[in-house]
Design a protein around this nucleic acid. Structure first.
Lengths: 254, 254
DNA sequence: TTCAAAGGTATATACAGCGAACCATTCCCC
DNA sequence: GGGGAATGGTTCGCTGTATATACCTTTGAA
C-alpha cells in the first residue's frame, strides 16, 4: 500500500463520500419554504387552519419578516396557503391542497416516468425503517406522561377515522408523534424529512381502501405496544407496518 | 372542540416543535468548517495525510475557493490543518491533533462543568442508538461485495490495532463504515453528525484500556454478524456495544 | 534552469437577508 | 357609524457573505 506518511488505515472508499458531497447551499429562504411545506404536507396544521401572524412567526423561525413573506408568497402561489388581511385575518392553509407535482419532472427525452431510480427508493425506505422502527422502540421504552398517552391515542383515532383524501396527512401526523415520544428532539426533524421524501413517492401510487384498513389495524398494534411499554412488540409491529408500504412502493415503482 | 373550519384532529402539542424551531442560519463558511472538521475528527483523513488541492476541493464542495480558504485558515489556526506551499505542497492534517475544547465553555458564573444537561445526553444517546443499531441491522441484511467485505474487515483490524490516542478516531471510522454499508446514502451524514456530538461528550471522560479491549471484542461480534448476514445478531451486538458507552457516559456526566 | 503545481493575495460585483418604518384593509366593539 | 386594533402589504437602505477572476509567490522535480 503506497501511503505517504504516518500510521493508520487506508482512507479509500469512505472519505470521498463525506468530503465530496456539495455543501447544502441552504438559502434561508429555501429552508423557510421547506419548513412551511412540511407543516402543511405532514398535517401539522390542518387545511383551513391559521398560521401564526407573520411578525410572530418570523420571530419564532429566527428569520426576517421579509424572508418569511417571500416564502409564504411562494407557497401561496403554489396553492398551499392563502392570506387574508385585516383584523382576524392571517395566513391560512388552503382548504383544498394542490395535487403534488407527481415528481418525474419531465425529462427532455420524454421518458415515461422514471427520474425515480431504484437507489433513491432504497435510500428512503431503508432510512425510514431505521428511523421509524428505532423511534417506536425508544418510545415504548419510556414512561409516558398522561397527556402524552392521551394525545397518542387520539392521534390513533384520528387516523382511523380519516377518509382517503386526508389519510396521508393524518397518518404522517401519527407517525411523527410517535417519533416525538422517543425522547430525542433531534429525531423529529429527521423523521419529518424522510417522511416528506416518502410522501413524494407515495403520491405516485394509488391509495386503496383495503390498504387503509390494514394500516389502521397495524397502527393500533403499534400504539398499544408503546402504551404498554413493550419495546420488542413495538419494534416488530412497526417493522411489519413499514414493510407493507415498502412492498407496495417497490411493486408500483420498480 | 372549537375548530374553525373543516375536519381533522386538534393540532396541539406537535406543530409547535417543528414550526417554532429557529431556522439553521447555516453560513456556507460555517458549514464548510464543519465538513472539514468532521473529515479530520472522524478519522476520514488520518493525521499527516493530504487534503485535495484547494481549487479542486472547492469545486467538489460547491464552494468558492475563497470561502474554502477561510475555513482552512480557521482550522489551521486551531491546529487541525497545516498548509505548505510550492509544488507537492498542499493542505495536510496536523500530525498531532489539538486537544478538543472540552466543551463547558466557561460560564461567567464559574460553575464547574455543566452546560451539559441530562436532556442533551439523552438526545444524543437515543439518536445514536436508533441510527447505529438500525444501520448495523440494515448492513447485515444486504449482500456485500467482496471489496466491501474486505474493507469492513480491515477497518475492524485497524480498530483492534490502534493505541489509546488514536482509538477514538479509528473507532469512529469503523462505525461510520458500517453505516455506509447499510445502503442508505442519506444515513451517513446523519451518523457522522451524531458521532461528532457523541465524541464531544466522550472527550470529557477518560478512556480506559479495559474499555478498549471490551469494545474490540464487541466490534468483532458486530462485524462477524454483518459478514455472515445475521441481522438479529448484528442488532443485538450493536445494541450491547452502545449500551456500554451509554452507561459509561451517564455515570461520568450525570 | 525551467516549469508545473500548489498556496497566497487583491479587487470588483451581486445579492440575500435584515431592520424599521409606514400604508391599507378588515372587523369587533362602543 | 366611528374608533381602535390586529393583521397583511410595501418600501428603502444597509450590511455582510459569497463569488468570480486575475495575478503573485513559493517550492521541488525534471
Amino acid at each position: 500500500m503506497s501511503r505517504q506518511s504516518s500510521a493508520g488505515p487506508p482512507t479509500a472508499g469512505l472519505s470521498s463520500d463525506l468530503l465530496l458531497g456539495p455543501v447544502s447551499g441552504t438559502n434561508t429562504f429555501e429552508e423557510t419554504v421547506q419548513r412551511l411545506l412540511q407543516t402543511v404536507r405532514l398535517g401539522l396544521i390542518a387545511p383551513g387552519e391559521r398560521l401564526p401572524a407573520e411578525r410572530e412567526l418570523a420571530a419564532q423561525l429566527g428569520v426576517s419578516r421579509d424572508t418569511l413573506r417571500e416564502a409564504i408568497a411562494s407557497l401561496a402561489g403554489a396553492g398551499y396557503l392563502i392570506s387574508r388581511r385585516g383584523r382576524y385575518g392571517g395566513t391560512f392553509v388552503s382548504n383544498v391542497l394542490p395535487a403534488p407535482p407527481l415528481l418525474a419532472e419531465k425529462n427532455p427525452t420524454g421518458a415515461s416516468h422514471p427520474s425515480i431510480t431504484a437507489a433513491q427508493i432504497d435510500d428512503v425506505l431503508t432510512l425510514r425503517d431505521i428511523l421509524e422502527v428505532g423511534g417506536a422502540r425508544a418510545a415504548a421504552g419510556r414512561v409516558l406522561s398522561p397527556p402524552e398517552r392521551e394525545l397518542l391515542w387520539s392521534s390513533l383515532e384520528a387516523a382511523a377515522a380519516a377518509d382517503a383524501d386526508e389519510y396521508r396527512r393524518v397518518d404522517s401526523r401519527l407517525h411523527l408523534y410517535i417519533g416525538e415520544l422517543a425522547g430525542s428532539p433531534s429525531l423529529v426533524p429527521l423523521l419529518a424529512d424522510v417522511r416528506m421524501r416518502l410522501n413524494e413517492l407515495l403520491d405516485a401510487i394509488p391509495l386503496l381502501a383495503p390498504n387503509i384498513a390494514h394500516s389502521n389495524k397495524q397502527h393500533e398494534q403499534i400504539v398499544i405496544a408503546i402504551l404498554t411499554g413493550r419495546p420488542d412488540a413495538a419494534t416488530d409491529a412497526m417493522r411489519e407496518h413499514l414493510s407493507g408500504t415498502a412492498l407496495l412502493l417497490r411493486g408500483f415503482l420498480e
